[in-house]
Design a protein around this nucleic acid. Structure first.
Length: 482
RNA sequence: GCUCCCGUCGUCCAGCGGCCUAGGAUCCCACCCUUUCAAGGUGGUGACGCGGGUUCGAAUCCCGUCGGGAGUACCA
């Protein structure tokens, strides 16, 4: 867990990240646990708990001459960079020991003033590095274009380059797989790996601070894989709503974790046979880093939604009922249509509703659009639907006829359908002219789950009560007689 | 500015010199089905950034160009 930046890595943000990973279904064999402990033989696994190791390594690196101290203040550095960028003496802002190391006098003066300075790693002044990336192939940089990184801040804390390089080796990391944004940081990482392995520097440091010894067979990580960035539909990187925050957001919106896993795997990759619908076993069996694409992928919520709807339709009704519950009891939203936990009758109602809504949902949170008529005592009629449907000629008659026929039908979907189907002929109008007014009366809206099923689910009493209550509204809405 | 990366339908992928008058998915449109909304079915619009090469033949190889992205922190 990379929490070397104390200002960003709060207890809360770390917890939220682990929760998000667990929800989406990513587990780990070795690493931190929720309760603050660790699991695995090469811990601790929070970088904030490994500071003694980093400091020990830094001392040894310093003693070996691989580093130098930089006493410049942030202001001095910023001014220098500004000058360089503007073309000051022609070069880009590359920090190299050759031009940056303090003279003996300057060093003495700064130290006398009490400055500690930060610790920079000396990178080669010339020559080049080539790293092999599983996704991008060979990439080469000239060392002259690479700045000497700060590996220890003036307050003594380790920075990401040091901490990660140490942990790569100390914890036996075999594959470094991360975003493309970290590609340019790779040269200094391999440089550090080499230094840490030289003369057993890391092993000695590990022993000195009492951390678990490395397995002797570990060398440097076998491979790097820099994955393409995921960007928004506007091609800008997913900054504002990224990371754990948006994962929790997807959860609230009712995306299934298995949908997210499937969709995310397809960003930058596709199985050989081109199938898009993959379960975990498929992905584990077929995923191949070498087949990952190299260009940034835009996150398309429409496509995600389509996938999600497909998976919702495949859930069995009992499972869907369970998954819907947190969207109805106020866990994820402000609307609480169910008690917590739901009563037996509430659960039965949701269970009965599931077959009616399953094929018309893309996200679980859409249940709040369908459920109210079935879970609420006092039905409110949607004004737009009233205006659109009740004003039509024949609406009150259709409702009256339904009221007349409903008390005596056998209470089944089929019988209800048969009874209502008989009405158009009797009234001399089309079936739509009957169904719509009845729909609005019973469900409160001109858009609802299938009518006969809805009536059946609501029950004879509730359906009749709603029809009777709506009748005067429909009569009122009729255009004045000429 | 400098360094590195990338460039096939709006979007995600397939394509690895001829099977491509470029395929699938999503989106959009039309039609069918239909009690509303969906779901489902059928069909359709839509792309190799540009310019040079190499080759009998290029989306596929090479060069250039343009465009996009990332990095350029005592953040990670």
């Amino acid at each position: 867990m990379e929490d070397t930046d104390a200002t960003r890595a709060t207890e809360e943000s770390m917890r939220s990240m682990m929760e998000a990973m667990r929800w989406i279904g990513l587990d780990w064999d070795e690493g931190p646990e929720d309760d603050g402990t660790s699991r695995g033989p090469y811990g601790p696994y929070r970088q904030s708990e490994r500071t003694a190791l980093y400091a020990e390594v830094a001392r040894r690196l310093e003693a070996s001459g691989a580093t130098y101290r930089d006493h410049r203040t942030s202001e001095e550095l910023e001014a220098w960079r500004e000058l360089q960028r503007k073309g000051g003496d022609g070069g880009p802002p590359v920090v190299k020991a050759s031009t940056f190391e303090h003279s003996d006098e300057d060093l003495a003066r700064r130290e006398a003033e009490g400055s500690v300075g930060s610790l920079r790693l000396r990178t080669p002044e010339s020559g080049s590095v080539t790293v092999t990336d599983l996704i991008r192939g060979e990439i080469t940089w000239d060392w002259a274009t690479i700045s000497d990184p700060v590996i220890e801040r003036s307050d003594g804390s380790a920075t990401y380059p040091l901490a990660n390089s140490v942990d790569d080796l100390a914890q036996g990391v075999s594959l470094i797989c991360r975003g493309e944004d970290l590609l340019s940081v790779t040269p200094r990482q391999v440089l550090l790996h080499g230094l840490l392995l030289t003369d057993g520097l890391l092993d000695a440091a590990l022993a000195a601070v009492g951390f678990p010894a490395r397995d002797a067979s570990w060398v440097a990580p076998e491979a790097f894989a820099h994955l393409p960035m995921v960007v928004g539909m506007d091609r800008k990187k997913l900054s504002k709503r990224h990371g754990s925050v948006s994962i929790q957001e997807f959860r609230r919106q009712g995306f299934l974790p298995e949908t997210l896993r499937n969709y995310l795997a397809l960003l930058g990759w596709a199985p050989r046979d081109g199938r898009e619908r993959l379960d975990d076993a498929d992905m584990i069996a077929e995923f191949d880093l070498r087949a990952v694409g190299r260009s940034a992928a835009a996150f398309d919520v429409d496509k995600l939604s389509a996938f999600n709807g497909e998976r919702i339709r495949e859930l069995d009704p009992g499972e869907l009922t369970d998954r819907l519950t947190p969207h109805l009891d106020g866990t994820y939203g402000e609307v609480a249509l169910l008690d917590t936990p739901p009563t037996d009758s509430q659960r039965a109602m949701v269970h009965g509703l599931v077959p009616l809504v399953q094929e018309r949902m893309q996200r679980l949170d859409e249940i709040v659009e369908y459920a109210p008529p079935f879970l609420v005592d006092e039905l409110e009629l949607d004004p737009d639907s009233v205006k659109k449907v009740f004003t039509k000629k024949g609406a009150p008659e259709a409702i009256e006829a339904t009221i007349a026929v409903l008390p005596d039908v056998e209470w089944s979907v089929e019988a209800i359908e048969e009874a209502l189907r008989g009405l158009p002929e009797q009234l001399g109008i089309g079936f739509g002219k009957v169904a719509q007014p009845v729909r609005v009366a019973v469900t409160g809206s001109s858009v609802s789950p299938p009518l006969f099923e809805s009536i059946e689910l609501l029950g004879r009493e509730t359906s009749l009560a709603r029809l009777r209550a709506a009748l005067p509204v429909a009569q009122e809405a009729q255009p004045a007689a000429e």
